[in-house]
């Protein structure tokens, strides 16, 4: 297993499947009344979050606690980062205090990699800038496999702000590694030509991208994109790219609808889709804890 999980670009099919298989057992643990096993007792997991995040941080924290690891959660506002301490110094300090694993969320692409260079602890990238969010992609794959029974041969359409999405990047690498077909869809300003140059089918017409899809994944739209003129208006975006029940009829009848959350209701998804089938957004959240448990277990080498 890898020492660090910084991204999925260089992670192979076998490693991905090992994580997903291990997560299945972890999900079983989470279904018990006593959701705790002693596997990582005495190990220290530090959650270092330089960006606001509830779901990812809590998900990691619950995963570590379910494995009996000790956790410390640091958010940028409360840490010495506000006093001008560099990422490198913060990471070195936490390492000196005995951290076995650092889980890092940071607004700068490459921050997790920079942290990994500064520490002997294992590092998990919990989202770095617009680069990667590997644990999100792994939980997405877990959810798809659980529902469909397979990953190979699935057609997965990712819709929205492809350019700035770390979720999309990680999903593209992972899905390609396991033999799924990925399609990307969004307005031309948010659909970089580099993606098409990598051989990924890209669509500016949503309807074409949805045709025959097994899985549709909508991405969160950062509303500040409007200010940088990537989009003329929210209304126009919604008219062209919002996933509605009617548009979903173009996909396979048993299509799965996903979203990494939090959802801008009525922007990426029609409001009635968020909590109802075929949406599996809540299952994604549940599975996130199991997948993160699997990673902690595999990377910290339990027992």
């Amino acid at each position: 297993m890898f020492k660090h999980l910084l991204g999925l670009r260089d992670v192979g099919r076998e490693e991905i499947l090992t994580v997903l298989d291990t997560a299945r057992g972890m999900k079983e643990v989470l279904g018990r009344r006593i959701k705790k096993v002693p596997t990582l007792r005495g190990r220290i997991v530090v959650l270092l979050f330089f960006e606001p995040s509830t779901r990812t941080r809590v998900s990691f924290e619950l995963a570590a606690k379910a494995l009996s690891a000790d956790t410390v959660s640091i958010t940028a506002a409360a840490s010495s980062v506000a006093k001008g301490e560099s990422l490198r110094d913060t990471v070195r300090t936490l390492t000196a205090m005995g951290a076995d694993m650092l889980v890092i969320r940071h607004p700068a692409s490459g921050a997790a990699e920079a942290a990994a260079r500064a520490t002997t602890a294992a590092v998990i990238n919990a989202g770095d800038g617009t680069h990667e969010h590997p644990t999100q992609a792994l939980l997405d794959l877990f959810t798809m496999r659980e529902a469909k029974g397979r990953l190979e041969g699935l057609t997965v359409t990712i819709v929205g702000d492809i350019r700035h999405s770390r979720v999309a990047r990680s999903n593209v690498w992972a899905l390609r590694a396991v033999g799924a077909e990925v399609r990307l869809a969004g307005p031309a300003t948010l659909l970089p030509p580099e993606a098409a140059a990598l051989g990924i089918p890209c669509y500016t017409t949503l309807e074409q991208a949805l045709e025959g899809a097994d899985v549709v994944m909508a991405l969160r739209l950062q509303l500040e994109r409007m200010r940088a003129n990537y989009l003329p208006s929210l209304r126009e975006y919604t008219r062209l790219y919002c996933i509605t029940r009617e548009r979903l009829r173009l996909a396979k009848p048993d299509v799965l609808l996903m979203h990494p959350g939090p959802v801008n209701r009525g922007v990426e998804l029609a409001p009635d889709l968020v909590e109802n089938a075929p949406s599996v957004i809540e299952e994604q959240v549940t599975n996130g804890v199991a997948v993160r448990m699997a990673l902690l277990y595999l990377m910290l080498g339990g027992e």
Partner: peptide, 8 residues
């Protein structure tokens, strides 16, 4: 290409 891969 590299900027896209690195998310920069």
């Amino acid at each position: 290409r590299t900027a896209y891969l690195l998310g920069l």
